[in-house]
Design a binder for these strands. Sequence first.
RNA 1: GCCCCCGUAGCUCAGUGGAUAGAGCACCGGUUUCCUAAACCGGGUGUCGCAUGUUCAAGUCAUGCCGGGGGCGCCA
Length: 549
Amino acid sequence: MRSRLASAIESALETMGIREASGDIQIERPNDPGRGDLSSNIAMAAAKRMGGNPRELAGRLKDSIVLDAGFIDRVEVAGPGFLNFAFSKAWLTKQVEIINIEGRDYGRSEIGRGRKVQVEYVSANPTGPLVIVAARAAAVGSALVNILRKTGHEVESEYYLNDAGSQVRKLGVSLMTRFMQRLGQDVPFPEDGYPGGYLVDIAGLIPEEDGRLWLAKAPEESAAAFGEFALDHIIRWIRRDLDGFGVVFDNYFRESALHAAGGGIGETLEIFKSGKAVYEDDGALWFRSTDYGDEKDRVLVRSDGTPTYFLADAAYHLDKFRRGYSRVIDIFGPDHHGHIARLKAAAAVFGAPDGWLDIMTVQWVRLVEDGRQVKMSKRGGEFETLGSLVEDVGSDASKFFFLMRKINAHLDFNLTLARKSSDENPVYYVQYAHARICSVIAFAGEAGVRLPEDMSCVSLLEEPEELELIRNLVIFPHLVEGAAESCEPHRLTGYAQQLAASFHRFYHICRIVSSDERLSQARLLLAEASRIVLAESLGLLGVSAPDRM
RNA sequence: GCCCCCGUAGCUCAGUGGAUAGAGCACCGGUUUCCUAAACCGGGUGUCGCAUGUUCAAGUCAUGCCGGGGGCGCCA
């Protein structure tokens, strides 16, 4: 609808002999609905370019613009030179029909057509259960995947498992210690170990014979054996927790695969070398990432000959590049933001075009209960996990709360509010609207009113609450595109609340099932259109849309 | 010290360079013989952290400062 209006403005400019301003045409929504449904700043922009009075130019534009009265039936000049347009009632009510016909495909867009995108998210180290910030990343990442798919992108989601390196060795030593303690041996817990109680649990699962066998090995092999056992269990937990959260990945990529023979580390190093981006210092191999905008150079191979985490990460991104994605989006936790510059530098060495790698960071989450921050002691190994959060407030409320905020802002997660299954809780407010519609449709069916095949009755819709609801429905496609382009899923939570409010208002004022059958059908179609868009909004967020509550 | 994010109503936060800056919560009051009251309606005096600049137009962009959080390892 915007492009339709934009081209009308463009031809009006052309008839007036103004060519140079057509690139300045912007269509937006006035923040005060009383001004109209769409507005353009073109007169101000063009007047600026050519000199002259914006209001006067707007007036001339208004006279020469040719618009189908079945689309827009009111044009006004306002303020400093805005052109405001109002949809005709016929066009608005027609949209109710369109939504009913398109169903869940309403709002589908082709802006991502031909674009293959990878979204990598969560990717938390498998050295412990997923914590709250990982839950936030999971909610955001999966919603983004849905939104990109809705807009025509071909999307693959991936979890990068850091199942190699010194952290895993530490994990092995920690588990080994727990196992020895289980055997009654008085051994101190390592200073830099993982103190969480979950390792005590895992130690309890080790078959005693196996454990004794591992203990008998050389220290390195011994740590590796315990480490593998721990990884195995923790990865299973992570997948189970994500599953319970309704988050599914297309692919899990293991760092260890990169370290295996022919796994990509060696080749990556060669590419760095042939790009003349490498030098030796102190016995270590360095990447001159400062040439690519990083603040300091980075070690690729330590003086003891082992590759760094960064080299593996670079190899991983080379692998992504070779897989042919037109764009790769990484969602990082707040503790990884220092990696952005060096990874982009690596991508540049590999020959990736500017903007190929897009890294978003999700900021910290504070859990708040009864107005006070919930203490999370990582040192004591006690922390709130994704699994316990879902158990506590449910996955729908968790996701909705995570998705209410911009990702780059710190988030206060109000546990007290999220737990409430009452009107104060925004997620229930939206879900209730959906359930209410299902209930009305069922009630109407019992009363003999069904969704009609012939939808021409929608032209009967004319109450302010009806038209206002339709106005909220028709912005959905544009909203989804905006959320996709900006990678901002949180726009949809705000929209869902606004749409739910608009429906509740309509429901309160306009009785749907009445003795006027045609009007009842029209209102039923409007309710169904609202249900479709609500269900789709919630679906994109990964939140369920219940039929009853 | 350097880098990133944030600073908007009592609280938590929305706000694609546009017109009179919004929502939820909290608080007070009202609405049900009727399709789900988990709903609806009414009640807001904000230095948009401060300053300078860019612009026809700045909460939004740029620079500097102040305040809060985070990151700066041959750990991952």
